[in-house]
């Protein structure tokens, strides 16, 4: 079935070009490592600020990877092959969402406890952060993927993507820093799934025509 095949294909593609697999997570760690250099603050305040920093880092890391959801396949012509397979575009979009989340957000989720060690974060706090990210990151990936589908083929796609995506990430950041709001994040992810599914499907239909 193409749904599973597409997920496996995208994961293999990310794995073969291993820089893809590690890009988001290493970018996230790099941002976090740089932050203490620009703040003249005590270690305790870093611990306080960590959960805030991490959401900014996640937003930027996901933004960095968005070109790979549809754009790379669009540029080399593979998207056409995928689109004319006898398969509903909605499911193609879902497969793309899932594989992109696995290949970019799972490395991020693994990297966060390691980053937490650098900032002297307690295990329970780390756990809260990871739970929030598991609940919120799918939504961020969905929104990012939808916007990258919308800007497919546009000359200034990267610019538009950044300008449109970042404001849409603000709700995730607001609730992300609050330890008790993982259910709200989950809700946001679900809402963005619906929004993104229709937007991406519509954009790919437009592109196909």
């Amino acid at each position: 079935m193409l749904f599973y095949n597409l997920i496996i294909r995208d994961l293999k593609l990310a794995f073969y070009s291993s820089t893809n697999f590690l890009l988001a997570a290493s970018f996230l760690i790099l941002i976090l490592v740089l932050i203490p250099f620009v703040f003249n603050a005590s270690p305790d305040s870093f611990t306080l600020l960590f959960s805030g920093f991490i959401w900014i880092a996640i937003a930027l890391s996901i933004l960095l990877t968005l070109d790979r959801v549809f754009n790379s396949d669009y540029e080399d012509g593979n998207l056409e092959i995928i689109l004319i397979s006898q398969f509903p575009i909605e499911l193609i979009v879902c497969a793309k969402f899932i594989s992109h989340w696995i290949s970019n957000c799972i490395p991020i989720i693994i990297a966060i406890p390691i980053a937490g060690l650098l900032f002297n974060i307690s295990l329970s706090d780390n756990l809260y952060i990871v739970v929030n990210i598991i609940a919120g990151s799918p939504g961020m990936v969905f929104i990012g993927a939808a916007i990258s589908a919308l800007t497919l083929g546009s000359k200034r796609a990267s610019l538009y993507k950044t300008i449109i995506v970042i404001p849409l990430y603000i709700p995730f950041m607001i609730f992300g820093v609050n330890q008790e709001s993982s259910l709200v994040l989950l809700g946001l992810s679900m809402i963005s799934f619906i929004f993104s599914l229709f937007t991406s499907t519509y954009s790919l239909h437009l592109y196909a025509e």
């Binding site: 079935m1 193409l2 095949n5 597409l6 496996i8 294909r9 293999k12 593609l13 073969y16 070009s17 790379s72 540029e75 080399d76 012509g77 593979n78 056409e80 092959i81 995928i82 004319i84 397979s85």
Partner: peptide
Amino acid sequence: FVGQKNSLKENLTVQQNIELWQYLYQ
């Protein structure tokens, strides 16, 4: 259809590209 775009992934080997076709063409 084989178009003017080659539909190949530049940073992969030819064999890896062929392996990915298996999933695309099922």
